[in-house]
Write a protein that binds this DNA or RNA. Structure first.
Lengths: 152, 152
DNA sequence: ATAAAAATTGCAACTATATTGCATTAGAGG
DNA sequence: CCTCTAATGCAATATAGTTGCAATTTTTAT
């Protein structure tokens, strides 16, 4: 569990009240949250647009990552300190082994409740190399189905 | 190359003028198209909402599949008979009881031009089993980067 | 310490994608 | 041909996200 303050201290990034608030909410949740989810957990006075902009900024500074859900709403989640440390280019990783780490772990999306879970230990391997004329930035593995709770 | 008529004949599904038109456009393109892309290639008179509904229907009847892009617009593509046949690999990957549907090959999404390409021969393998309390329907592998054309 | 410059925030308006309701039309089956 | 159902067309609405701009806050330079 990482505190919002700690993250900004360690990263040397400029923190503001808004950024701290948003980061704190993300730190309290260990699954990806939508913009709506975040708004609900933030003070009522928190501005929608500011939230979008804070999220953009956090994304650009690699404090968080986002994943696209079936409902075409982004979900945001804190990058664990672990994943912040991996700076190798994907190209290198790609060319070497076909295994990926980094923010390329799998996500499970429940079609019923819409929740998204990080499968931190599940990574994709590829059965074949990606054609060389494609320049790869990132790889995303989305597994869809029904979560434990929705199977009851 | 499959003709729209042929698809409906072989599948025994009820065809209408709209469904044939949409299917024909999809058959003429070998990469996933957005709703907009489709509208452009259809007669001007073609209704937006009808297109959405035709696409829904084609989806439900597994004539097409769709993938979510970075721009939160769905992209639709005909299920080739080829990709319908790839049921084998996934069962092995997902050790347990999980049911699986076709079309789990990888997609490459160009961040510049937005085009999506099917990498028909690239499939994911997982480094670990998915936790058993998740019921898996499908697996999606999205690779993002720059396509050959946009690297020039 | 203070003025100027830059970054951040808040609000309103706007865009794009997709969905819903409902009246109308077309097709299938008797 | 008539009836019933499915499909279509149009208008309105919903949802996610973006843009413009003024006001505020923070940083930088003097």
């Amino acid at each position: 569990m990482q505190s919002a303050e700690l993250i900004f201290q360690q990263s040397g990034l400029k923190s503001t009240a808004s950024r701290l608030e948003v980061t704190a909410v993300l730190a309290q949740n260990n699954h990806p949250l939508t913009h709506q989810d975040l708004l609900k957990q933030l003070p009522d006075s928190f501005d929608r647009v500011t939230l979008y902009r804070v999220l953009d900024w956090l994304l650009q500074n690699k404090v968080i990552h986002r994943i696209a859900g079936e409902d075409r709403a982004w979900r945001f989640q804190l990058n664990t300190s672990q994943s912040n440390q991996t700076k190798f280019s994907y190209k290198t990783i790609l060319s070497k082994s076909k295994t990926f780490k980094q923010h390329n772990h799998a996500h499970f999306q429940c079609g019923d409740c819409g929740k998204v879970f990080c499968l931190d230990n599940v990574y994709p391997k590829l059965t074949q190399d990606i054609p060389t004329d494609f320049l790869v930035d990132s790889i995303e593995l989305n597994i869809k189905g029904k979560c434990a709770n929705c199977q009851k």
